[in-house]
Simulated assay, not measured.
Amino acid sequence: MDDALPQPDSARAAIGGRGAASARVPQRFGLAERSIDGEWRDIREALDGPAPKLTTTVTEEHPRSIISFNQSPDIAFDRSINAYRGCEHGCVYCFARPTHAYHDLSPGLDFETKLFAKPDAARLLRETLARRNYRPAPIAMGTNTDPYQPIEGRYRITRQLLEVCLDCRHPVTITTKSDRVLSDLDLLAEMAELGLVAVAISVTSLDPRLSGLLEPRASAPEKRLAALGRLAEAGVPTHCSVSPVIPSITDEFMEEIVQRAAAVGVASAGWIPLRLPHEVSPLFREWLDVHYPDRAGKVMSIVRSIRGGKDNDSDFFSRFKPNGVWAELFRARFRLACKRAGIGKAKFDLDCSQFRKPAPGGQMRLL
């Protein structure tokens, strides 16, 4: 484990409806850590009562661009859009948590309570697609923070982006943990007919109580499976992502998730092992100490065994391909589960040939 990262405090307690147990500020940027001495915390609560319940705040931001391009050799897409920063789903294992650190905010509780929305996203996308030198390729949504987290119900930024993509015949892939994706089923079905969209829904476990601890504000597992079925029934190419697989916590559900996904018509499935980059590692260790102290040592021992003796492997190519005995066991189990369920790997060939520049003046086409 990186010695520069703060160690978890086993005395911390769970916070209702939140994934992280603290608001740790990363030390790698030289920021002062926000903490309250245990004795002073007790005195304050005796005088003032319990601390007020955490609330979610949303700040609107207005960036100059909306598509992020990458040249990573081990990621299947070269461009993505994130309509929001931070994510109220509060998944304790979320690899995107460290991005909040760049804004002097905690990858812990700040990441899931201090959110940012980009209401200009659709306009910026239309302007980008209208550029003379723009060349289409599938845009990935949901690669960092969830496009269908709860605040999407108010802002509808993801829907606006999909409307632009449909109008311009631009292909899109979506990854989410929410059945709120069904609110855009009309657009997704139309895009699917044109070969412009594929949707992946992540299912981590089948235990609603465990899911409530790991990803407290994401849709329940049954709702995600039902959403996969509705999408598949509507003709939308669907993928079930069994991720992350957490040793001795969620791996017991792998086979049944694959079987349940196949039963509702899902075309493909994949698995992703737990990743713990930067501040995610101490946050996850803290979560283990709070919720599973009896097996915390075993979980982290297996995690380190598949990551070359470290909490995380950030190297290209190997970061998504764990090695070692445990990794091979998970890989073999998943391969056998897919074979038994008659489900394959993702092969979504989206169509870029239909792309057309946005209509002049930002108007939507009637036909």
Rank of each mutant, 00 (worst) to 15 (best):
G49Y: 00
G49M: 00
A51S: 14
P52Q: 12
E60V: 03
E61T: 03
R64I: 03
I66C: 13
S68H: 04
F69T: 10
Q71T: 14
S72H: 15
D74M: 14
I75Y: 11
D78R: 06
R79F: 05
S80A: 14
I81L: 13
A83G: 15
Y84C: 00
R85F: 14
H89P: 08
G90A: 08
C94R: 09
F95G: 02
P98H: 14
P98N: 13
T99F: 09
T99K: 00
A101E: 09
H103N: 15
D104E: 15
S106V: 07
P107F: 06
P107Y: 05
G108Y: 14
F111R: 10
E112L: 10
T113I: 07
L115M: 06
F116H: 07
A117T: 03
A121N: 08
A121L: 01
A122V: 15
A122C: 09
R126Q: 12
R126P: 11
R126Y: 04
N133L: 13
P136E: 06
P136D: 11
A137N: 06
P138T: 10
P138Q: 12
I139Y: 05
M141D: 00
T143K: 01
T145Q: 11
T145F: 09
P147Q: 06
Q149H: 14
P150K: 01
P150C: 02
I151V: 11
E152V: 03
E152I: 00
R154T: 12
R154Q: 03
L161Y: 03
L162R: 15
C165P: 06
C165N: 02
C165D: 01
C168E: 13
R169N: 13
T175H: 14
T175F: 15
S178G: 04
S178K: 07
V181K: 02
